[in-house]
Design a protein around this nucleic acid. Structure first.
Length: 492
RNA sequence: GUCUCCGUCGUCUAGGGGUUAGGACAACGGGUUUUCAUCCCGUCAACAGCAGUUCGAUUCUGCUCGGAGAUGCCA
């Protein structure tokens, strides 16, 4: 039988790391077993739904290069794949459950339920959840309530005795006493919309899903879903609950731990290769040694058996490391194409056409390639190339342990050497040697002769390699900046 | 509170009845270097605890402790 898995997010917010990890596991499992990956949009919560979230879902998967075999836009034989377009189906099946006595109408108001909850809380009652108040209403009673115009919900009749077991590929058998299962959860809301449990089970069945890979936070509702399948007379799929992604404090990863939406990561300049590689490595491993995986390799080598049980902490530092590695693996022109939008955002490339931008940025890629952690770092690193950093103050002009007077002397002596060396096309190493020779003459450190040059040209004590930076800025402009710095130091 | 799940270096993990318990990130130290990086080398660092099974447990079993998740007309 063909493997069919799905990623079924709810478009209520931006796609986050945890969700995408689930999507990736599903996708790689489908690919590695020659099956189908299905996308289904679970938008039954109309109050939290947002168009932006839905667009973000599509654009995020697209950016990651994750294509779904069936789903919205792509279509497929079991559509529609958006739950809000399937309401009739859920209503029909919910009614079927009522007719067969597996579910019932409930007329309890939200107010009554809240009061009930409050009372249980206050009295520390061992009873919890719904008190099954409407479970045994007679047909006539139901009809009478209906006639009053009351809008009921439909609740599932969870058995009060016995226990329910389901098998999980990763966890093994998980059983729960039926009395501990949420008492008679709502299947159909009073507005006629289904809840997650109903829609999820019906769709997974109708879409012939064979394996459910979802986060471990769903384990507690596993037995409930199995009961639902039984109520319908359906065979449940294979379950595989994925370890959760945690923040550094051991709690479910959330915004207070830092960026969690992949949009954030994308905007900062993380590469999809790095995200995919790192994220699938939390909770999964190949052999414990190999750590670089391309998407294609994962599509081939991913296996459900190697998924870990324990939850994993999301390590931002390790993601950074992966990102740096992938940045360095790019060719100069590839990287330039990725960098242009960041420079553009700050209008640093104004006045150039697209090709000119690409050429210009390609030329400076060697200055930053080994320094970038995220793409957006390029702005701080190369702004001085495109824009005058302004008059430097004496403090940044002076290397550590050097006075302004010393640096004035040093720069005054270095400048002509640098200038003539550069203008006569001398090799960098020769110019460098000549500049180094100044230091002992003046009784300053080597750093003391280079720092004022660097600071005057780049506006900072930290910069890409000096000679390359000067060439990137241009000789005339660089010399102008040095002369200006000389004035500043002289005035001290 | 109740239920369920989890427990190897700080973090992600490999391993598995007898191993010097391996790798990676981080941290720290060193080398290269005109700054910052990159790169290279090295150091630190773990089987939660207690019983039991066994010639032998980190590995198997039980308990304890610790952590997490779920307990919604949210998913």
């Amino acid at each position: 039988m063909e493997t069919r898995v799905r990623y079924a997010p709810s478009p209520t917010g931006l796609q986050h790391i945890g969700g995408v990890r689930t999507a990736l596991f599903n996708y790689f499992f489908a690919k590695s077993s020659g099956g189908k990956f299905i996308l289904r949009v679970e938008d039954t919560d109309r109050t939290r739904y947002s168009d932006e979230a839905l667009e973000d879902l599509y654009s995020t998967l697209d950016w990651l290069g994750i294509k779904w075999d069936e789903g919205p836009i792509a279509g497929g034989p079991y559509g529609p794949y958006i739950q809000s377009e399937r309401y009739d189906i859920y209503r029909k099946y919910a009614q079927q459950l009522v007719d067969s006595g597996m579910a019932y109408y409930c007329f309890c108001t939200p107010e009554r339920l809240e009061a009930l909850r409050a009372e249980q809380e206050a009295s520390h009652s061992p009873e919890q959840g719904y008190d099954r108040h409407c479970r045994n209403l007679s047909k006539d009673e139901v009809q009478a309530l209906l006639d009053q115009g009351l809008k009921p919900v439909i609740r599932l009749k969870v058995p009060e005795e016995g226990s329910t077991t389901f098998h999980d590929v990763i966890m093994g058998d998980i059983t729960r006493e039926n009395k501990d299962i949420s008492p008679d959860p709502i299947l159909l809301k009073s507005d006629g919309f289904p809840t997650y449990h109903l829609a999820n089970v019906i769709d997974d069945h109708l879409m012939h899903i064979t394996h459910i890979l979802r986060a471990q936070e769903w384990i507690p509702s596993g037995p409930l879903h199995v009961i639902l399948y039984k109520a319908f007379g359906w065979e449940p799929p294979v379950y595989c609950h994925l370890p959760m992604v945690m923040g550094s404090d051991g709690h479910k990863l959330s915004k207070r731990h830092g960026s969690t939406s992949v949009r954030d990561f994308r905007d900062k300049g993380y590469l999809p290769e790095a995200i995919i590689n790192y994220v699938t490595l939390v909770g999964w491993s190949f052999d414990g040694e190999k750590q670089f995986f391309s998407k294609a390799e994962l599509e081939k080598d991913f296996s459900i058996e190697k998924i870990n049980k324990a939850p994993g902490v999301f390590d931002y530092k390790k993601l950074d490391w992966f990102n740096g590695q992938y940045i360095r693996a790019k060719s100069d022109s590839e990287l330039a194409a990725l960098l242009v939008p960041y420079l553009d955002k700050e209008s640093l490339l104004d006045g150039m056409d697209e090709q000119a931008k690409l050429d210009r940025v390609t030329a400076i890629v060697p200055l930053v390639k080994e320094r970038l952690v995220v793409l957006s770092d390029v702005n701080d690193m190369t702004r001085f190339v495109f824009r005058d950093p302004g008059m430097p103050d004496a403090k940044t002009l002076c290397a550590k342990g050097h006075t302004a007077a010393q640096e004035y002397q040093g720069l005054a002596k270095a400048y002509p050497i640098l200038r003539s060396g550069l203008e006569s096309w001398k090799p960098d190493s020769e110019i460098e040697q000549e500049l180094c020779a100044i230091a002992p003459e003046l009784g300053i450190k080597v750093n003391g002769v280079f720092m004022p040059i660097r600071a005057s040209v780049t506006g900072s004590q930290v910069s890409p390699p000096l000679f390359d930076s000067i060439r990137a800025v241009g000789y005339d402009e660089s010399f102008r900046r040095i002369e200006r710095a000389l004035e500043v130091l002289k005035a001290c």
